[in-house]
Simulated scan of single mutants.
Amino acid sequence: MSFRGPTILLFVGFLGCVHAQLKLGFYDSSCPRAEKVILEFVEEHIPNAPTVAASLLRMHFHDCFVRGCDGSVLINSTSANQAEKAATPNQTLRGFDFIDRLKSAVEEECPGIVSCADILALAARDAVGVIGGPFWRVPTGRRDGSISNSSEALSEIPAPTSNLSSLKTAFANKGLNDADLVLLSGAHTIGVAHCESFSDRLYNFTGTGDQDPSLDGFYAANLKKNKCRDATDETTLVEMDPGSFRTFDVGYYRNLLKRRGLFESDAALTTEAAAKAAIVNLVDSPPQTFFAGFAMSMEKMGSIGVQTGSSGEIRRNCAVVNS
């Protein structure tokens, strides 16, 4: 699968196929207002905390990349098990309380019917829509998994230090192609990142106290002066898409072409001519090109490894497996 521009353009006006085991409007009979309850909750709360949209989108991605989209990222650790939440990639996830409150609202409407996995998938879509991002179809019918393991999260979720080869392999292992990689990386157009996730690029790239030469020098100097002032900073947050981190647009891709992606995994997308050409195509095309492509890839990602039918369970509490 190549990154060639036409591959991206083919997404325009085409929203893809619904996963055979999921169904649009799955709850129309069992809980007719389920999706409306979720949308209304998101519309009420996201405007007051717009960065949570990025948090929910990231949580959905991390959920789907480990055992499929089964809500396993929501499960708390116990004395006998370190859950996905405990893994390094998930320790900076935010929004768990948001999902818990949303689950309570849905449970009040129709107890024991709607899975946490579906609630997360729908909330991520609706939150992105509230901040002006693209709409994508979310077929439902996912059931919740009961296994959540920190070691699996550590091995399955692409690291911010990943090179292009590692990224392509990680996505291919989930049934996602190279075009999906470019498009889904565009989620970094919203949200923030902790300095510690990329500080090696500023202070110790090869272990000798050097700076990553692939990072724009002016941008790196600004980060050192105004944001990540030393290599040990674990708390400061940096905008993923400076200037428009609350706006869903192609600003992230523009920054990549200026060598201003925060993560090594961001910069990796410009290390191959075909991938870089796809990014240039997205920047030069109408915004709808990115929106339609992102929608297609999100729908595809949302069907990874789903449990349906008699598999899994409907968790009463998203953080705890049913006893």
Rank of each mutant, 00 (worst) to 15 (best):
R101V: 06
I119F: 12
A117K: 12
V106G: 04
S104Q: 12
T88V: 11
I113T: 15
I113M: 08
I99C: 10
T88S: 12
L122D: 02
A121Y: 09
A105F: 01
L122R: 04
G95K: 05
E107L: 12
A105V: 07
F96N: 04
K103G: 00
S79T: 07
F96Q: 05
A121C: 07
L93H: 07
I75D: 00
S79Y: 06
P111G: 00
A86D: 10
R94T: 04
A105N: 08
F96H: 09
I113G: 00
A83H: 05
E109Y: 14
A80R: 11
C116P: 02
T88F: 14
A123S: 14
A86I: 06
P89K: 00
G95I: 06
N90D: 03
S79L: 09
I99M: 04
A86L: 08
D100P: 00
A117M: 12
A121E: 06
I75Y: 04
K103F: 00
Q82K: 14
S104W: 01
L74V: 05
A80H: 13
T92I: 11
A105Y: 11
I119N: 02
N76S: 12
S104V: 08
P111F: 15
Q82I: 03
D97E: 10
A83T: 11
V106M: 06
A83Q: 04
A86H: 07
N81M: 09
I75L: 15
L74W: 13
N90A: 09
T78M: 01
Q82L: 11
G95Q: 06
E108D: 12
L120G: 09
S79W: 07
P111R: 12
A105W: 05
L93C: 01
A123K: 08
I113F: 05
G112L: 03
N76I: 03
E84Y: 13
A123E: 05
E109N: 13
A83K: 01
D100Y: 05
N76V: 02
S77V: 05
T78E: 06
S115Q: 06
Q82A: 15
D100W: 01
N76Q: 09
Q82R: 14
A105C: 08
N81Y: 15
P89V: 01
C110S: 02
A83E: 01
F98C: 03
D118S: 03
S115R: 14
Q91G: 10
L120T: 14
L74E: 04
P111E: 03
A80L: 12
E107P: 08
A86K: 11
I113D: 00
E84A: 13
T92H: 15
A80T: 13
D100N: 11
A105M: 08
A86N: 05
A105S: 13
I75K: 00
S115W: 11
S115M: 06
R94L: 05
I99S: 07
K85E: 02
V114G: 09
T88W: 10
